[in-house]
Structures are given as structure tokens and as C-alpha cells.
Simulated assay, not measured.
Amino acid sequence: MRIASCRNIFLVGPMGAGKTTIGRRLAELRQLHFVDSDHEIESRTGVDIPYIFEKEGEAGFRRREKQVIADLVLQQDIVLSTGGGAVLDADNRRALAAHGFVVYLHASVEQQLARTARADNRPLLQHAADRRAVLSQLLSVRDPLYREIADLVLPTDGRSAKGLVHEIVQQLDRVPAPI
């Protein structure tokens, strides 16, 4: 395991993995500030993510995401939930790995389908004729990138947020304190 600063905890993984739910609970338990990178982008721009995708495309969104992540990783004592595609950018991966303990919340395509079935705020799924195919493709590209920077990989299928938070805390307590 790579020794990382445990003053920050970064959650990565696909949509529907539970990053926001687990992040909020983890932050509360560890008395840290919770930040969701997508919500931060929306706050800074004053519009929602689907609107950014519509007006600027995915490339425009990714530029905004990169700036937000570069800013957020420099904060201290945060739990950061990243967007599922944040790991596509090598600079984002380096920044996350260098500034905190990275937890990859792994979710199967089945779980992602179930958890995103009624979501209308997922630009990559909005117009997809075959959501399973889209999610499978995204996971095949992103899974190795999540694993590349993860200090901890946790399967989330069939597991409660409470249990996952407990396991993350146990793992964090085993990591040597930063110098």
C-alpha cells in the first residue's frame, strides 16, 4: 500500500458506486469536510452538469473538472467524492494519488444499472439506447485507472454504506500517519 496523507480521503469509482453517500457518512464520522467534485463544478458555474455537457461537450466539462480537482486536493481534512470520469485525466490521477488516501468503490455493471435506472442527470447515459453497453464500456476503460491510484479497493455490490464506511475507517486506522 502506498503511504498517502490520511488528512484527505478521495473516493473514486463509477456512477452508482455510492461515492456521495459513503463520502458524506465518512466525513461525518471522521469530522472532515465533505466535497463532491460535480457539485463543486455546479456551484462554480451556476448550472448543472447536463447543461455543461450540452453546451461545452464532454471536453469542456473535463476541463472544468480538472481545475476543480486541482483546487480541491490542496485543501486539508476533506473527503472528496469525484465524478466517475475524473480518472481519465493523468493530471487528476497524479493529484489524487499525491494528496490523499484514495478509495476505489468498485460497482458491477448490474449495480450501476440498478442505481442509475431513474437518474436523469447522467449525461453519458441520457441518450443511450443500451445503458448496459455504455456502462460496460466505461468500466472497461476506467477500472484500470481507478486501480492504478487506489490505496484501497472495496467492492460495493450488496453492501451497506454503513459497512463500507466502517471498513474504510478500519483501513485508514492501519495507515501510518503522514510525516
Score class of each variant (00 low, 15 high):
48 D>H: 11
80 L>C: 09
57 G>E: 07
52 I>L: 10
63 R>C: 11
36 D>H: 04
24 R>V: 14
55 K>L: 10
77 D>F: 10
24 R>I: 14
28 E>R: 14
25 R>Q: 13
54 E>F: 10
30 R>N: 05
26 L>E: 03
79 V>C: 04
75 Q>P: 03
76 Q>M: 10
84 G>A: 06
48 D>Q: 12
74 L>H: 15
58 E>G: 05
61 F>E: 03
61 F>S: 04
82 T>R: 00
58 E>S: 04
46 G>R: 12
33 H>S: 12
35 V>D: 00
47 V>R: 10
88 L>S: 10
56 E>P: 05
68 V>N: 00
73 V>K: 06
29 L>I: 11
56 E>D: 14
64 R>P: 01
40 E>T: 12
41 I>T: 03
40 E>M: 12
60 G>M: 06
34 F>W: 08
44 R>D: 07
75 Q>W: 12
50 P>S: 09
52 I>G: 04
62 R>V: 08
39 H>R: 15
51 Y>T: 15
59 A>M: 08
88 L>T: 12
74 L>R: 15
51 Y>H: 14
24 R>A: 08
43 S>N: 14
57 G>Y: 08
51 Y>I: 13
76 Q>R: 15
26 L>F: 07
75 Q>Y: 13
72 L>A: 08
74 L>S: 13
88 L>H: 06
41 I>R: 00
30 R>K: 13
55 K>H: 15
77 D>G: 13
75 Q>D: 11
38 D>R: 02
53 F>N: 07
64 R>Q: 12
50 P>W: 03
36 D>C: 03
66 K>H: 13
57 G>M: 07
51 Y>W: 14
81 S>E: 02
39 H>Q: 15
29 L>H: 13
70 A>C: 06
60 G>E: 04
59 A>H: 09
59 A>E: 14
76 Q>I: 06
26 L>N: 07
55 K>G: 00
48 D>M: 11
73 V>N: 04
55 K>A: 09
25 R>K: 12
37 S>T: 15
59 A>K: 12
39 H>P: 01
87 V>R: 02
58 E>T: 05
73 V>G: 06
56 E>Q: 14
75 Q>L: 15
51 Y>G: 02
35 V>W: 00
31 Q>H: 13
30 R>W: 08
54 E>D: 14
88 L>K: 11
46 G>C: 11
30 R>Q: 12
32 L>N: 01
49 I>M: 02
48 D>P: 11
54 E>N: 12
52 I>R: 03
59 A>Y: 06
61 F>C: 08
51 Y>Q: 14
86 A>I: 07
44 R>Y: 06
87 V>S: 02
76 Q>N: 13
69 I>A: 06
69 I>S: 02
41 I>V: 15
59 A>P: 08
72 L>C: 10
87 V>Y: 01
35 V>C: 04
26 L>P: 05
53 F>V: 05
66 K>T: 15
42 E>L: 08
54 E>G: 13
52 I>M: 08
50 P>Q: 07
80 L>P: 03
52 I>E: 01
80 L>N: 02
57 G>L: 05
57 G>A: 08
69 I>E: 00
84 G>T: 08
